[in-house]
């Protein structure tokens, strides 16, 4: 085995350039010193322990790392943490972090079995929140289009579409409906 002998001169190429970043995450103010090259995804996972942000490809295709940035979905593997400064980030914990008190969107995914392994699920639930935010009714085909930026390998998508529609009914009101209280709308 070859073992390293550390140089005493710190090499600034290797992640030693840092900045202070201040942002809001799931409603709370956060200030941290981060390496400038740290992605938003790794910052959320490693610095803030928000391991619901899942890394599927790290090149911006699978969408499993989707978070909401000021209410709009972004792929957190393609952003640096420092780029999120001054903005509001939401992960699936912003719906509900408590498995005994699920948000209506999470309830709808459970009712429709809109998940199997759960790896793309936080991203899909956040995307559902984004498209359901204004109370619009969508057709199945529109929902299909709206979620098509996130890959799911388990479900074949149909139960996810059913879950988004079920969540929409819950959030819009009507029999058995619940309000998205965390959104205050």
């Amino acid at each position: 085995m070859t073992t390293s002998e550390h140089s005493t001169d710190l090499d600034t190429r290797y992640g030693s350039d840092t900045r202070t970043v201040t942002l809001r995450v799931n409603g709370r103010g956060v200030t941290r010193e981060v390496a400038t090259r740290t992605t938003l995804a790794d910052f959320l996972r490693d610095d803030l322990d928000l391991v619901s942000v899942h890394l599927g490809c790290e090149h911006g295709v699978c969408g499993c790392c989707t978070v909401l940035l000021d209410g709009g979905s972004v792929r957190s593997c393609l952003m640096l943490a420092v780029q999120a400064g001054g903005q509001e980030v939401e992960t699936v914990e912003s719906l509900s972090p408590d498995q005994d008190r699920l948000h209506p969107i999470q309830q709808a995914f459970a009712e429709e079995q809109g998940l199997q392994c759960g790896f793309c699920t936080p991203a899909m639930a956040l995307r559902a929140r984004e498209i359901l935010a204004d109370g619009k009714e969508w057709t199945d085909e529109e929902v299909r289009q709206e979620i098509s930026g996130i890959l799911c390998r388990c479900t074949g998508y149909q139960n996810i579409i059913n879950a988004v529609q079920n969540a929409g009914r819950k959030l819009r009101g009507g029999p058995g409906a619940a309000r998205d209280e965390t959104k205050g709308s």
Binding site: S52, H54, Q99, F109, A110, E111, Q113
Partner: peptide
């Protein structure tokens, strides 16, 4: 019936290896 695995997965606590 609803799956018993789902509540933890829905709050992002699947306990995956990278976590």
């Amino acid at each position: 019936r609803k799956r018993v695995e789902d509540p933890r997965l829905l709050v992002g606590r699947g306990g995956f290896i990278a976590d």
